[in-house]
């Protein structure tokens, strides 16, 4: 049967003891890798071995391991989220590698996502962006019947396309400029496309862009690397919509 043969790989991984410590690449040999293993399971095995030897395991983040929670995020051999298209690194499997491969594993290296330890970074800047306006201001209990506000099906689908974002940060990590436009664009788009989000769309665009600039994300230069790596295939059309929302909001705001 296919895929039974086990093999060995060398993992070169970024080790950094703390936010202010210097980091370096360290090589580890991992034997007995099954092609059916996921990439993160291979790291689990490596970690258990390190632990048994009394070494400190490699810190990396992952939770659901089915590509939806957005916890995981590694640069594998220079590929953000690994070589598979539009997927998270937790969905990468070892059958993509062969015996003797040297695999380089790095964290997101973004100024606005500082490293906490090894491969773990702090993405709380994304939460602050949402707090700046990524919501609809309706209190619990105040909503009208859900069917009293019809939403054009195509618009609802487009909103859903944008809402598929899992907040993993791959867009920023892959952007040559470290911009967060795809993340912000996705949220602004989702809420601008729905009639429920229309009353505060102008303020939302202004506030979220202001927060984005404050957090120290770069400027978008329309290179579209973000779209190419996004595990949920969120499109740069959302960035255009963010630009449009922002420019119109500026043009027509009375302030």
């Amino acid at each position: 049967m296919k895929g039974l043969k086990h093999f060995s790989v060398t993992v070169r991984v970024w080790r950094q003891a703390g936010p202010k410590e210097p980091g370096k690449m360290v090589s580890y040999k991992v034997k007995d890798v099954s092609p059916d293993m996921s990439f993160l399971e291979m790291l689990d095995v490596l970690n258990d071995n390190l632990l048994k030897k009394g070494d400190t395991p490699i810190a990396f983040e992952s939770d659901c391991r089915e590509g939806i929670c957005g916890c995981c995020g590694l640069v594998v051999n220079g590929d953000v989220h690994g070589p598979d298209e539009h997927s998270t690194v937790c969905q990468l499997h070892m059958r993509r590698f062969s015996d003797g491969d040297v695999i380089t594993v790095e964290p997101w290296r973004v100024k606005s996502f500082p490293v906490i330890k090894d491969l773990v970074v702090d993405r709380s800047s994304f939460d602050r962006l949402i707090a700046a306006g990524g919501f609809i201001s309706v209190n619990t209990g105040a909503a009208p019947d859900a069917n009293s506000v019809p939403v054009e099906k195509d618009k609802a689908e487009e909103a859903m396309d944008a809402a598929a974002c899992i907040g993993c940060g791959a867009c920023v990590a892959s952007c040559p400029n470290g911009a967060a436009m795809l993340f912000v664009g996705a949220k602004v788009s989702q809420l601008a496309l729905l009639p429920q989000g229309t009353p505060e769309r102008a303020n939302r665009a202004l506030n979220m862009v202001a927060a984005m600039d404050k957090e120290g994300f770069g400027n978008c230069t329309n290179e579209y690397e973000c779209e190419a790596v996004c595990p949920k295939d969120v499109k740069v059309a959302n960035i255009a919509r963010l630009n449009r929302e922002f420019l119109l909001a500026n043009l027509f705001s009375k302030k």
Binding site: G78, E106, V110, S174, G178, A179, T221, A228
Partner: peptide, 19 residues
């Protein structure tokens, strides 16, 4: 600004086809 904010220090970095 982009120069100041760009991701820096990737040892291996492959562009994914957007560029």
């Amino acid at each position: 600004e982009d120069f100041l904010n760009a991701p820096r220090g990737y040892e291996a970095r492959k562009w994914q086809g957007g560029r």
